[in-house]
Design a protein around this nucleic acid. Structure first.
Length: 211
DNA sequence: CAAACGATTTTCT
DNA sequence: GAAAATCGTTTGG
């Protein structure tokens, strides 16, 4: 799976909205590993394989922005029917990209935490102001958004649009291929901070480092 | 209206 | 390993 350009077009399968409407956000967080994000933003096409995700499981998950059914301008995207983007700004400077899942008014989402660069690497390097292709280009939720050109401009955009789509191309990883751990940076979530909702492709050099 | 803080990244020591 | 950078969103008065 070295270069997306080598994949025959007929094997590129855009994930349909129904895919995202599965109510099991933990299942989707695992199933999204190996899927390919393709963006066409600012006249630059970039693509990358998802290698690390986290599940945010709705109103009963203390780590979720929509915990306790909190509805604000920021969280409204998560209440949409699955299949749109939820992009918000963290620490005043980083955009974080989530895939909204589940039914309307059930605010679940999958945070994309790391990707493996495929096409458009020069564009990614330029956006990140880097010269070499290495993990730091796209490891970390803020970093990959910068590389792929994802900003809050595309908040609530369908993942079947001209700007961004997710494709099933290569493989589905098996349980054995997935490393499961606690989520990152959610210590405030008390007992829910311990939930095993973080998923990484085992052995991938493109995920964040083990903790 | 003021204040606190964050699903992070980078740089410095 | 520690700390700064930096501001939109949320909450409280």
């Amino acid at each position: 799976m070295e270069n997306l350009k080598k994949i025959p077009k007929k094997e590129m399968k855009l994930l349909e909205p129904s895919y995202y409407q599965n109510e099991d956000v933990v299942y989707l967080a695992k199933d999204l590993l190996g899927k390919v994000i393709i963006t066409n933003i600012d006249n630059m096409v970039t693509s990358a394989e998802i290698v690390e995700t986290e599940a945010y499981n709705g109103i009963n998950d203390k780590a979720c922005h929509a915990y306790n059914n909190r509805r604000t301008k920021r969280t409204s995207a998560m209440y949409k029917r699955g299949g749109v983007a939820y992009v918000y700004i963290c620490y005043g400077m980083h955009h974080l990209f989530n895939v909204v899942t589940g039914r309307e008014n059930e605010p679940q989402a999958v945070l994309i935490r790391a990707v493996k660069p495929l096409d458009g690497i020069n564009a990614m390097l330029a956006r990140r102001k880097k010269n070499t292709l290495q993990r730091s280009l796209t490891a970390g939720p803020g970093a990959l958004c910068q590389a792929l050109g994802i900003t809050k401009e595309i908040n609530e955009t369908p993942l079947t649009s001209e700007l961004i789509g997710i494709y099933g191309v290569f493989n589905n990883y098996r349980e054995d291929d997935i490393q499961i751990s606690k989520r990152v940076g959610v210590a405030y979530a008390e007992d829910d901070a311990l939930l095993p909702y973080r998923f990484r492709v085992k052995g991938s050099k493109w995920t964040s480092l083990a903790k």
